[in-house]
Each structure stands twice: as C-alpha cells, then as structure tokens.
Write a protein that binds this DNA or RNA. Structure first.
Length: 396
RNA sequence: GCCAAGGUGGCUGAGUGGACAAAAGCAUCAGACUGUAAAUCUGACGGCCGGAAGGCCUACCUAGGUUCGAAUCCUGGCCUUGGCACCA
C-alpha cells in the first residue's frame, strides 16, 4: 500500500467507530477528486454540545483536505412533524423558526468549521416537490423487512410502543438526500448507522455510486450514560471556561480515554501513552484528568482562559476561594433568616427543603457553616455564600 | 367494532376499603470520606406551620357516586397494551 498521507490516516482512525467501505474511502481520498461530504442536521435549534462536535471535527478534517462539506438541513421533516411517539413530542417548526435556529446554529459551528467553505442545503428543496409517483418509486427501493430490522424500531415494537408509519419513511428520505447531492461520503454517529447505510442502498437503486459511510464514536455523557438534554449530563460548547473545566473534572475516571480521543486534538500515539499511564500509574490520574480538562477548555476559550480556569479550580475546590467567574447568582445585602437563603439562591423552591438543606449543613457563609435555619443573619456586600458544592452566591 | 388487561410520585414498581404522603429499587439533592472521580456510609426526597412532638392542605388518569372512611368499591369519560374481527 502507498505511503499514507498523515491527514488521511488521522481521518480514518481517530474517533472512528467504523467505516463502510474503508478501502473505497481510502481510494476516493487518494484519487485527488473533490468529494461531496454530507452530514444531516436537525434544525430544531438545540445548543451544540461536545458530542455534536465529534462529528463536526471529523467534517473539518475533510474540509482541510479540500473536500466539499454539505450540511443538509432537515427542514422538510421538521415542518411536517410527526404525531407518533407522544413521549417524544416532535413539534412542527415554521420556516421562520427554522431560519432563526439556523442562525444560532451557524454561530456555534463557526468555532469548528470554515463557514465560507461549507454549503447549507435544505432538503425541502426536493422533498417538498415530490408527488405520489416519486414517493412510490422511492418506497419501492427498500423492503418492509429491512426497515423493521432497524434496532430501535424492533425495540419499540417489543416494548409495545407505537411507531407511526411516517417514521418508517424517514430513513428513505435521508437516503434520498444522498441521491440528490450525489454524496460521496456521509458522516454520522453510531446511532445513525442504519440510516447511513440506507443511503447507500438507495443511491445504488437510483443507479448512483454508493457513498462511503463514516461512523464516529458516540461521546458518553458526564455520568457515563448516553448524553442527553434531559439527563443534563453534557457540556455545551458555549459553556463558561470554569464550568466547562469543572464538568470535565466530574466525569468518571474510566471515561478519560474516550474524552481524550473524542474531544481533544490528541494524536493516537499520545493517546496510547495516556492510556498506559492511566493503567500503570494510578497516582497520575488526577493530573491527567486536569490536563484533559485544560485541553478541552483551550479549544473553545484559548490558552489563557484555560489556564485561569485550571487555577480557579484549585482555588475553589481545594482552598475554598471564590472568583467572580464562579458566582451563579447575586442577592441583595440585608437581614435574612438563614432558611430563606437557599430559596433566594434558586437552590430549591420549597421552604421545607430550604430548611432541611440548612440543617444538613449545605449552607456556608464566608466559609462558616451555620446549621440553624432560623438564625438571623445580616448579609453585607461581598459576603460569599456557598450552597452545596457547586452553588456560589454573592451578596451585593 | 368486540373481548381482555391496565393507567400509582422524575422513572421502574408494590399496595385492592382505615396502620397510606403511599413499600422497594433507580435517579436526584445534602453531609462524611476524597481528587467536585469511583466505591462506601449517613440523611433528605408533595406543599405549608412548628425547635420538636405534632398538625393542616393537596395528591394514586379524569368527572361523579357509595361509605364514618377510597389509591383501593361502583358508574361515565379519556388514554395505553394484548387478542379477535376487518384489511379493495
């Protein structure tokens, strides 16, 4: 085999779960042809978190090698919505909402991709024009059995949940997008594997060359479970430096290698070193984790901010000192009963809970724990209150 | 459409007339120990009053009813699941 370009090697190994078909992709990459690389995105306007970034960074690598990135916006499906799966509540979006969402989306991905070299395409462009005849044609390109082989469908059937007919059409539409773009490569997370492969099949049936599929690993959430908004176990990319740093520090130790691989620019060689260190020199774990946190913050906020976050982290958690940056909320100076403090600080909404928090020793004022919920205190400007481990309140 | 089963706190799930603000587990929050990790231990976990003992209010899909008393029994409604029937 030919000597492989370093960029290409990185592209096909780092953060990769699977590439289908690998050799085909390598050939394409070596052919010198400008490839059309596709990623589908939902225009629901959610904040991007580090999990999204994994695939975006992979796109960036393609971009740096001179290939054409196309982000395909699923506005058509978003406008139609889907009544099924009530627990999921997929609500329909107006085109105006979609426009706004895309604006915030672009602001976020600007941190990763070069927008001047990135194309945005709305799939309503062709999907909205399809008539029944086209839809039948598309639907004839796959079989019932294939669609229902899909894991999450099968699971939902087994669990007795309902699946709307429309949902079964989504993979087809996604595949058809690839046809329209004549995509050479499509990216996605492991959860997208089925849809990505469907794209290949549909392209083939439409007499096109099949796209290769690059499946990146899924970044686990802070607690090791699946990253999701509802579990609140993610790090969004516009997180403040200190918060970002702290969140990384709170991941389980065994997630360190994955976070290193998926969230930083580390080389595979260095990654190996870190893995072996983690295994053989347990006393270095803390150090390694702090390095990881710093590297991640650096990507989004620069070296200075990362350094600062790192220092503040020690100050706050080791020595109990506070900085402006860590203050979550400000309350007015004056006289209070201690039990009022947790409520004013948004730690809870219930007076009973607030009282209990105090009695359990969760409230510290200027580093002094006070346990009596009925004790009167007078707060002066610049007093610092800490509630639990993570909540800091300043008095103004 | 018919028949059957079922709907309980953030989730899973027990409870089938009073001892139920509702077992247990998970999740969450707080404390101890630590490295804001993991593991472990302790406590809290509907709201409100109270230092506490205790009390009050609102709650087991929904609207009524029976009863001294209902998450539990009855009736209507809504929803879910399974089976049957239907399927040009």
């Amino acid at each position: 085999m030919k000597e492989m370009n370093k960029g290409i090697k990185n592209l096909i190994t780092k953060s990769i779960d699977e590439i289908i078909v690998k050799d085909s992709l390598i050939n394409k990459l070596n052919s010198g042809k400008k490839l059309v690389v596709k990623l589908g995105i939902d225009p629901t306007g959610s904040k991007l978190h580090l999990g999204h970034v994994v695939v975006l960074k992979k796109l960036k690598e393609f971009q740096d090698l001179g290939h054409q990135i196309i982000l395909i916006i699923g506005d058509f499906t978003a406008r139609i919505g889907d009544p099924s799966g009530k627990n999921k509540e997929r609500k329909t979006l107006s085109s105006k909402e979609i426009e706004n969402n895309m604006k915030t989306y672009k602001q976020q991905i600007e941190k990763i991709l070069d927008l001047n070299k990135t194309k945005f395409v709305y799939n309503s462009q062709w999907l909205a024009k399809m008539d029944l005849k086209n839809i039948f044609e598309l639907a004839s390109k796959t079989t019932f059995a294939q669609i229902f082989e899909r894991n999450d469908f099968r699971q939902r059937i087994e669990e007795g949940n309902d699946i709307s007919y429309l949902e079964t059409l989504y993979p087809l539409m996604q595949g058809y997008d690839s046809v329209q773009l004549k995509a050479d490569v499509e990216l996605g997370g492991t959860d997208q594997k089925f849809n990505l492969l469907m794209g290949r099949q549909i392209q083939k049936r439409y007499k096109q060359k099949e796209q290769d599929v690059v499946i990146v690993k899924l970044l686990p959430g802070l607690d090791g479970a699946k990253m999701s908004k509802s579990a609140n176990n993610f790090i969004s990319i516009d997180e403040k430096p200190f918060d970002m740093y702290s969140k990384v520090m709170s991941i389980s130790d065994n997630l360190i290698p994955e976070y290193y691989e998926l969230c930083t620019n580390i080389s595979s060689k260095d990654l190996e070193k870190i893995v072996s260190k983690l295994e053989n020199e347990k006393e270095k774990v803390y150090e390694i984790k702090r390095q990881l946190a710093k590297e991640i913050v650096e990507i989004y906020h620069g070296t200075n901010e990362a350094e600062l976050a790192s220092n503040n982290f020690v100050k706050v958690y080791k020595y109990g000192q506070y900085k402006e940056a860590e203050i979550h909320i400000v309350i007015k100076s004056g006289n209070y009963k201690l039990r009022e403090i947790p409520i004013l600080s948004n730690a809870t909404t219930s007076t009973v809970q607030a009282k209990k928090l105090v009695m359990q020793g969760a409230v510290e004022i200027n580093n002094k724990k006070i346990l009596d919920p009925n004790q009167k205190i007078s707060l002066k400007a610049k007093d610092i209150i800490r509630i639990g481990k993570k909540r800091f309140v300043k008095v103004k």
